[in-house]
């Protein structure tokens, strides 16, 4: 890891990935502006994986997993972190090579590292989605998830999308040789004002950990969950034709409510107010929403099916 090609900061790794995937022809999108648990929830993946239209996108997605909060003390665990997500439909035949090229771009040369594709099938019970693929190991560490989507929202994916997900902090810590995430240089360490990951996120991790675990108003959250669920159902049930007689089914607004419900469920889970048996029921309720949104999206132009 002492090659001259080595990046110097967290943001440089992100920039190199952006440039690399832009050069491969992906539309470099911006993060979705809602709280999600993973990059897969971005409609650019969940909804765009559906239908027959070709698609290629790459983006950073801030992700929130309230139960993983450790008040900024654990070297690897965060309640808020970043994923880098690439989705290409149909999956190109050289997707593995393209992926390996991205590792080279951030300074991981597969000729001196041990890069391996180890079986790991992906399933999201909340999205009614699954796919086959691998976790990619570099020197014994999982650096990415590599999945060929088979189903999303209960629909068979035709054509199949290839999805790559990089856990950015973990990957960057490895590339930069940092032991504790908070010590990682966020911008260039030689900048006039060098900032570490901790300078930016130590305080927020503490604050959110406290709120997630102890403070979030559970009664209000239960109500929010119900509201999101109801609004999602209402949007889906609304007449597809507006007052001016135009057909405008509202798949994306409905899906926003599904995302909301999913995140509220995660918060309730972190507050420890959902029992083991109830857990399955809540996941099932979110899945019902996701499937209904997928059903509606399938009838739209973005899915190649405009009436």
């Amino acid at each position: 890891m002492t090659s001259p090609n080595r990046p110097r900061s967290f943001q440089e790794i992100i920039l190199r990935l952006q440039n690399y995937w832009a050069a491969q022809g992906c539309a470099v999108l911006q993060p979705y502006d809602m709280e999600v648990g993973a990059g897969t929830f971005h409609p650019a993946t969940t909804l765009r994986a559906l239908g027959g239209k070709s698609w290629a996108a790459a983006y950073v997605q801030p992700s929130r997993r309230p139960t993983d909060g450790r008040y900024g003390e654990n070297p690897n665990r965060l309640q808020h972190y970043y994923q880098y997500q690439v989705i290409i439909k149909p999956s190109p035949p050289d997707l593995q090579e393209l992926y390996l090229g991205s590792l080279k771009a951030i300074g991981l040369d597969p000729m001196i590292h041990d890069v391996r594709f180890v079986e790991d099938d992906w399933e999201s019970p909340t999205l009614g989605a699954w796919g086959l693929g691998w976790e990619v190991w570099c020197d014994g560490m999982e650096v990415s998830q590599f999945t060929y989507f088979q189903q999303v929202g209960g629909h068979d994916c035709r054509p199949v999308s290839g999805e790559l997900t990089y856990g950015l902090e973990r990957l960057a810590m490895y590339v930069l040789g940092v032991e504790h995430v908070m010590d990682m240089p966020f911008n260039d360490p030689d900048s006039p004002i060098p900032l570490s990951y901790g300078d930016i996120f130590r305080q927020t991790e503490r604050e959110y950990s406290r709120w997630n675990f102890d403070q979030a108003d559970t009664e209000m959250l239960f109500q929010h969950f119900k509201d999101a669920e109801a609004e999602c159902a209402r949007i889906l049930a609304a007449d597809e034709t507006d007052s001016a007689g135009r057909r405008i089914p509202m798949a994306h607004p409905a899906y926003d409510q599904c995302i909301k419900a999913s995140h509220i469920f995660n918060l309730l889970d972190a507050r420890g107010v959902i029992s083991v048996t109830e857990r399955q029921a809540y996941i099932g309720r979110v899945r019902t929403l996701a499937k209904a949104c997928a059903d509606l999206f399938m009838t739209t132009e973005a899915a190649g099916n405009a009436a």
Partner: peptide
């Protein structure tokens, strides 16, 4: 699984 735009199934 299937991959790309094809219909053939194989393990990968």
């Amino acid at each position: 699984m299937r991959w790309g735009a094809g219909n053939l199934r194989w393990v990968r």
